[in-house]
Write a protein that binds this DNA or RNA. Sequence first.
DNA 1: TCCGGTTCCGTTTTT
DNA 2: CGGAACCGGA
Length: 745
Amino acid sequence: MSTYLDELNPEQRAAVETIEGPVMIVAGAGSGKTRVLTYRIAYLMDQGIDPWHILALTFTNKAAKEMQNRIEKLVGAEAKNLWMGTFHSIFAKILRIEAHKIGYPQNFTIYDTEDSKSLIKGIIKEEGLNDEVYKPAHVYSRISLAKNNFISPREYEQNAELSETDRASGKPKIGYLYEQYTKRCRNAGAMDFDDLLIKTYELFLQHPDVVNKYQQKFRFVMVDEYQDTNHIQYLIIKKLAAAHQNICVVGDDAQSIYAFRGASIKNILNYEKDYPDLKVFKLEQNYRSTKTIVEAASDIIKKNKYQLEKNIWTDNGIGDKIKVFKALTDNEEGVLVANSIFEVKMKDHLNEKDFAILYRTNYQSRAFEEALRRLNIPYQIIGGVSFYQRKEVKDLLAYFRLAINTNDEEAFKRVINFPARGIGDTTVSKMIVLAKENEMSLWDVAKNIQHASGIDSRGRRTVSEWVVLIQRFQVQVGSMNAFDLATEIAKTSGINKHYFEDKTIEGINRYDNLQELLGAIKEFTERTDIEDKHLGVFMQEIALFTDADKQQIGDDKVTLMTIHGAKGLEFPVVYVAGLEENLFPSQMSLTSREDLEEERRLFYVALTRARKRVFLSFAQSRFRWGQVVYSEPSRFIEEINPKFLDYNQVQPAREREGAFVGKYVVPKPVVNKPIVKASYQAEAAFVAEDVSTLQEGMEVVHVRFGQGKVLMVEGKGEDKKAKILFDAIGEKQILIKYAKMRILN
DNA sequence: TCCGGTTCCGTTTTT
DNA sequence: CGGAACCGGA
């Protein structure tokens, strides 16, 4: 019979073989969760269940893809017919099929957070509200909170608690803004991330036939990372599984780290209440980590009050103690970690890809990057600003979006005058007013611009020329393949030219990114597993694509990412950095017990990513917002039983005068030397204007690198200002000696 | 309208 | 600090 089942321990095997009825698998870190999930799906298929009757919801696209591959190895190509993906991507797929039933076009746009915020900002301005009071980010988070709890705009305004909170904070109109926002999204044929969930649920509520269809289709439902589902996701799953009750959720309450996104640990803690005949399996043996790591992590998580009872253990060896690095500055932390990676790699004969540096916030990556670069250690950063969020990429994508859905208001506003074609803010504002007055979309106003009042003849001409351009693209969406059309749009829209002509370093980068985007589209059109090669399909693919999905596992590189990004991954050696009070745990989470517990779970996740060794590090001071911030070591270090810690080998931090400690120069009180000097690496050159202000002996107190290519030097005393323009190709640095200042990248 | 220059403000984590 | 918003001259 099926040999793969023999690889499982009894508890795992029971979890795999129990396919009928509600099941909950509580899977501790490193307990073989993914294996159980994949085998369970393979087992279902072995039992003769058609793959298209199986729905598996994962947390990231990458997890889905990986699982699909693994299952394919077990059962063959049939695995392709499984419905597997993230909540957002699966529901987007369903919504594309059913959109017309809830008044959306099939080709609806997906607004990302930036689009949503920009729309909200626009509404706030149009309503004549003060955007100091109504900060778009805040309004967005209130709306998102409401959506994730399935509260409609009307319910929001009637909800006593919510309106009380808003009134108390001086923003009574948030409910109204929510309503306007919803309306505008609908008119634009757009859904935001939250809509993908609530519209699905609405669809199910309003159309019994549709629910019935999907309930019959998905006879077996599985949910991975269940501890991180939010209320609306919970509702949808419950609805989908209502008919057959063959629902299996897998999760670990100790790894619930997405409360800020509306995830509720209660979903998993109270799961039994929903299904009285629930069968629970607990996977408690850790196969991943050493005893030291497992026990240290368990100690820590035990300090939390809210959790399911379980006892994680391992048969693995004791392993090394957890080492702590103490650094004076953030830059030194980077150096210590980079040096350690170099050493451990040699000593243990490991590869770069066996190392991960995990941190709480994205901005911490900088110091590590620099230190690693200096040692020539290859690395990759996951997270931060994703490729598809870059300005130039979004510019071009906006043209694509508009060609596909001309009502897409955010795309419209983004590119109507980009590259500049003489359609100014005044004209656009007038068009927005007209659209509102006549209840039309912006696109309709643009189309009928000849009849619009209050727009001068120049505006009329430029707008209608632009409309013709977009209409041409619109027709081509259906006839050309994605790559040909994308190239065509990049050329005729003028975007290509715009960035090609920008010869600054930034501009060159941007141009390269555009070429990379076109390359990705070319790749897409050459894929064999997809039949429809139109641009619309490509856009659907990437709408929910994140940076984490891009990660190249095969590459031999050190991985840098936030702990959130590390969910579901493992590495032989893990560095957990920035263990300072106020940073990790974050100061914003120190106000409530629940928040602190979530931070602790985050720390738990970080530790349990490691197979062999864990290093912790902290910096006594770090640069943050242009200032030095001092902190105490994190309480989490204290919470580890000292017997697991190696605290003695802490390297003393040294600060040498006049030397670089990473990016910053330590001030040295000698001024009898040139102040501004040289360039770094072969091809850099710079021209100083106003040279008189940059003479020997001048005491420079502050240097800033402005946007673009201007370096500003602010003198002391007479408050002199100097301007240095430089033009360089390749990597460059300007070194300014004997001053408290920054060394540029 | 465009562009360079200045001011001002945020600061967790992400589908 | 770094970036977005803003401002004012051409």
